[in-house]
Design a protein around this nucleic acid. Structure first.
Length: 281
DNA sequence: GCCGTTTCCTGAAAGC
DNA sequence: TGCTTTCAGGAAACGG
C-alpha cells in the first residue's frame, strides 16, 4: 500500500511523462469518486508536487487564445491524486484502469484495483474538501519537520500509532512505516503521552525509516512482488528491510522474542512485546 | 473536541 | 478443484 516513499517514487516517475504536456481529455467511469476532472482538460501540467501521500499536479490556466470566451473560468487549478491502497500509474491500460489522462503526447493510465484511490481537480491550494490534506503535518524529510515541535505535540497525544496515522504530527506515515518506526524507537504502539526521550527517538526513527524507504523505492507486499509497483511494473525493495511489519510469530531482529500482531484502531499492528513495553502514565 | 465505528471496494487468502 | 467467506486498509462520515 503506497505510503510516502511509494508516492514520492511515483511522483518522480510520472514527472517526465506529464510535465509540459497538455491534458486533452480525462476519461473515467465514476464521477462521484473522480471529481471535476473535466476542469483540467485543455490545461498544461506545469509541475508535480507531493504532500504526504497526495500527488499535486499543477495545472496552468487555460489559454485564452483558443476560445471566444477567452476568460479562464476557474483560475489556477490543481489535480489531486491519492493512490489509496492499490493505485498507481501505468503506460498501458489494464483491467483496473480507472482514470485515463489523455495528453497531447500519449496517455497515462491510473490503475486502482480496489478503488480506494481518489482523483479530484480543485482550485490551487483549496483543500477544504480533503480534511487530511488540509491539516497535513510537516514533511518528515524536510526541515519543516522540527523535533522540538514534534516532542511538544507528542507529550499530550493519545495512542501513538493512531496519532501518527492521522497525518497531523507528520505527513506520509502509514501503517507499515508507523509499525517500523515504533519498533525502531522501542515504543509500544498504544503508548500515550510520550516523554521527551521517547518522542525524540521516534522523531529520529521516522526520518530514518522514511529516508531508507524512499531510497529503496518503497515497499511491495504480497506474493509475486506485491500490490505496489512503479509505473513500469518494477517492485520497490523496502519490504526486504521490514523488521516487524508482516512478521508475526517471527523473532524480533533485536531481542529474539516473537513479534506479535494485534488490531489497534482497526489496523493490523506489529510489535515486539519485549522491546516495546507500554508505560502507565 | 476527541475517540471509536462504519463505510467504501475488490483481490488474495483461507476455509469448506 | 471450485465456491464462499474473511481480511486488508487510507480517509471520511458518523455516532457517542
Amino acid at each position: 500500500m503506497p505510503e510516502l516513499p511509494e508516492v514520492e517514487t511515483t511522483r518522480r516517475k510520472i514527472e517526465p511523462l506529464l510535465v509540459g504536456r497538455v491534458l486533452t481529455r480525462i476519461e473515467h467511469d465514476a464521477p462521484h469518486k473522480y471529481t471535476d476532472t473535466h476542469k483540467a482538460e485543455g490545461r498544461t501540467v506545469t509541475g508535480i508536487g507531493r504532500r504526504g501521500k497526495y500527488l499535486l499536479l499543477q495545472l496552468a490556466a487555460a489559454k485564452a487564445a483558443n476560445t471566444d470566451a477567452a476568460e479562464d473560468e476557474w483560475g489556477d487549478l490543481e489535480l489531486l491524486v491519492h493512490l489509496g491502497m492499490t493505485g498507481g500509474f501505468r503506460l498501458e491500460a489494464g483491467p483496473h484502469t480507472r482514470v485515463t489522462l489523455h495528453t497531447d503526447q500519449g496517455a497515462v493510465y491510473f490503475n486502482d484495483a480496489r478503488r480506494f484511490g481518489k482523483v479530484a481537480v480543485v482550485s490551487r491550494g483549496d483543500y477544504a474538501a480533503f480534511p487530511t490534506l488540509h491539516q497535513m503535518g510537516p514533511e518528515p524529510l524536510t526541515d519543516d519537520f522540527k523535533e522540538a515541535e514534534f516532542v511538544k505535540l507528542a507529550a499530550s497525544a493519545g495512542a501513538v500509532k493512531p496519532w501518527l496515522l492521522s497525518q497531523k504530527p507528520v505527513s506520509g506515515v502509514g501503517n507499515i512505516y508507523a509499525d517500523e518506526s515504533l519498533w525502531l524507537s522501542r515504543i509500544h504502539p498504544a503508548q500515550t503521552k510520550l516523554n521527551a526521550d521517547e518522542a525524540g527517538r521516534l522523531y529520529a526513527a521516522i526520518r530514518e525509516v522514511m529516508k531508507a524507504a524512499v531510497e529503496a523505492g518503497g515497499s511491495s507486499l504480497g506474493s509475486g512482488g506485491g500490490n505496489y509497483r512503479q509505473h513500469d511494473g518494477v517492485s520497490g525493495l523496502f519490504q526486504h528491510e521490514h523488521h516487524v511489519y508482516g512478521k508475526a510469530g517471527q523473532p524480533c531482529p533485536r531481542c529474539g522474542s516473537g513479534i506479535v500482531r494485534v488490531v489497534l484502531a482497526q489496523r493490523g499492528t506489529h510489535y515486539c512485546p519485549q522491546c516495546q513495553t507500554r508505560k502507565e502514565r
